[in-house]
Write a protein that binds this DNA or RNA. Structure first.
Length: 293
DNA sequence: CCGCGGGCCTGAGAGC
DNA sequence: TGCTCTCAGGCCCGCG
């Protein structure tokens, strides 16, 4: 579920609980998530402290005093909850108030900061890995990932260059983490809509023959940055599983212009279009066939 | 090398 | 109320 804005929201929520704090107790309640937990996972964390908590694409990276990095991914349905240790809460008590999914509380970190951090993931597409800091760039998950879309290195020139020989649709290209990091289905649809670019266009049309950006490409880069920044301000989008670390929902789903709005009127002023849903490379795409060209 | 489709899981919602 | 079917935000890998 979680795309860059959701992961960044979670990272910001975890930061005060983790940064500068020691793992006083680590509880792992099953042998695996998407993958088995690393060997001696509990032992390699307990007593170590978190120097900093960063994010790359949709991965959270906790830099540890041991020289290792804890890589955490939310998969499709993962969420973290930060609670105060001294309240003696039942795991998951406040996680999803309407149904008890505490059976999916798979990992609990008790921190010297006094906070307890609980990872919940019903579908278990999430994972936690440990790698030496020096090996981070060679990690198969992180190797080859493209520029961070909110950083200066993501601009129209780099996007045009990355797309210039692409045979796929612009939709598929933006979902490709090697081209730009952290976008998923929702924010790609929303960014393309705001840039008035059809998801069906060939990615190579973002570049001229010389590989330079077109006017569309500048609009698209601006739209990507805008949508991601607005979504982060809103605490992400909560469709089903995403929660902030306080348990609150994100609310950017109320700002969707196309995602999950098939059949509804296009919101572009004076556009008479109706939002359509199509399937591209196995994923739903939502767009306005009239104002996205 | 590149693009696509399968598979990993559970749960929600639709349709009968 | 209940069964069955489809679908969901990600990502790696193997196939053609």
């Amino acid at each position: 579920m979680p795309e860059l804005p959701e992961v960044e929201t979670v990272r910001r929520g975890l930061e005060p609980a983790l940064e500068g704090a020691r793992f006083t107790k680590v509880l792992v309640r099953r042998p695996d998530l998407r993958f088995p937990f690393p060997k001696n996972f509990t032992k390699r964390l307990t007593g170590k402290s978190v120097i900093g908590l960063g994010r790359r694409a949709k991965y959270m990276l906790a830099d540890l005093s041991s020289g290792e990095v804890l890589i955490m991914h939310l998969g499709m349905s993962g969420s973290f909850r930060v609670t105060q240790s001294d309240l003696q809460q039942t795991p998951g008590q406040f996680h999803h108030p309407r149904s008890d999914n505490s059976k999916h509380d798979h990992v609990v970190f008790e921190m010297s900061s006094g906070w307890t951090v609980t990872f919940n993931d019903p579908r278990r597409f999430g994972f936690m890995l440990l790698t030496a800091r020096a090996e981070l760039e060679n990690d198969p998950f992180l190797r080859g990932i493209g520029p961070e879309p909110l950083g200066n290195s993501f601009d129209a020139e780099t996007l045009a260059h990355a797309c210039r020989n692409k045979k796929t649709s612009v939709k598929a290209a933006l979902l490709d983490q090697k081209i730009v990091a952290g976008l998923g289905n929702i924010y790609v649809c929303e960014a393309l809509y705001r840039a008035h670019i059809s998801p069906k266009r060939l990615a190579s049309t973002l570049a001229t023959k010389k590989g330079e950006p077109t006017a569309d490409t500048f609009r698209l880069v601006d739209a990507v940055k805008y949508v991601l920044n607005e979504a982060i301000k809103a605490g992400g989008s909560s469709l089903r599983d995403h929660r902030q670390t306080t348990g609150e929902l994100g609310y950017f789903q109320h700002s969707f212009r196309v995602y999950d709005r098939q059949g509804e009127a296009c919101l572009t002023p004076r556009c008479k279009g109706k939002i359509r849903r199509i399937v591209q490379t196995g994923r739903s795409t939502f767009y306005c066939p009239v104002c996205q060209r």
